[in-house]
Design a protein around this nucleic acid. Structure first.
Lengths: 189, 189
DNA sequence: AAATGAGTAGACTAATCGGTATACTCATTG
DNA sequence: CAATGAGTATACCGATTAGTCTACTCATTT
């Protein structure tokens, strides 16, 4: 069905532009133009720019987490190794030439009003990342998987932010070193 | 001199508005109106919106770091205690009702192009925060102050981001727990 | 006394913003 | 065959964008 095709074209074009320039800085005309779709058609699929943004965030959420988890699982076998592999995957991500930081953090910054659908989506994403790491921590035999996962997520989040600002992917390996200490402390065996 | 006064009025009004709504979402008309200053006067002090943004960032940079350091030093005596006090101060910051996350991270998100004055200011701020924590780590007798400071800054940065997204200041105390472990590991005595 | 510069109010520009309207094509489907 | 719905192109809407302009006041300084 060409329906889904146009939708995806719009979402992907919007995603690219938002990453490159930010949400407010990209107009609906630009999105229509870059996706090769008319504004009329665009507003047929999404009733407002905010709805398109929401769709972009949801699309990115699913794709990113999927790619991320598969990369982690491809890089290490044991749960404990995978907790560290998270930071190797992150470093590869940071090193990509089109790395722009976390899309959800950017969205939260541009739409500061709490309790909006956009903010809710951001929250959800971070919650799912926490759950993923928590699962690994549980399998790895952490005494308090939730706490270890929180700590590692803090490191990861910090690494993303500082990698973006300093344009240096090495923050990931710094975070990895800290993670080693925390994991060692959290898994007594 | 009324010169500096008008300048500060503009900077403070702009700061408030940028925090509330983001940079692109706030127009020059709104800034002029909220500061009680004419657009003409505004453009007399700053030759463009970008220059005003830059001035806002520099103003905030100095004020924030000053307040932050004084709060840390008021909360603890020894360098080692101060390394932990950083996270107590952060938690108080997160709990403020007008907490909006890190202004520099927001700026970096809205102005993704690297090598611009705005991005440079963001970089500088994070660098100075690192230096500050590094100083504390040195005084505390860390084996590698630079490394410990990096790790603690990663935790702090992650806590800021997640506090903003989840609207919960507790991320600071989570970060503090992780910091305890890292400090213990980094200062062998 | 004259000149300068910071300030005012408010109109103004060209461009762009999010979003809508008209008039058309074309493939699918009942 | 007729109707529907997704698509095209393009013009348009009122509002707002960043930034400029004229014409004026007023205090300070030379």
């Amino acid at each position: 069905m060409s329906n889904t095709s146009k939708r995806e074209q719009l979402i992907q074009a919007a995603l690219t532009l938002f990453c490159e320039k930010g949400f407010h800085a990209v107009g609906t005309d630009a999105i229509a133009q870059h996706s090769g779709v008319t504004k009329k058609t665009m507003y047929h699929h999404f009733k407002s720019k905010d709805e398109l943004i929401l769709a972009v965030l949801r699309y990115y959420d699913e794709r990113f987490r999927n790619d991320f988890m598969r990369a982690v699982e491809g890089k290490a076998e044991t749960p404990r190794e995978r907790l560290l592999a998270v930071f190797d995957v992150a470093e590869k991500w940071f090193a990509k030439d089109n790395f722009y930081g976390c899309l959800f953090v950017a969205a939260a910054g541009e739409y500061p009003e709490p309790d909006t659908p956009i903010r809710h989506t951001c929250k959800e994403f971070k919650g799912l990342m926490q759950k993923y790491i928590e699962g690994l921590a549980t399998q790895a035999g952490a005494e308090s998987p939730e706490q270890l996962a929180s700590h590692l997520l803090l490191l990861l989040e910090g690494a993303i932010t500082l990698a973006q600002i300093h344009a240096s992917p090495q923050t990931a390996s710094q975070a990895k070193e800290a993670a080693k200490v925390l994991i060692q402390d959290a898994i007594k065996r």
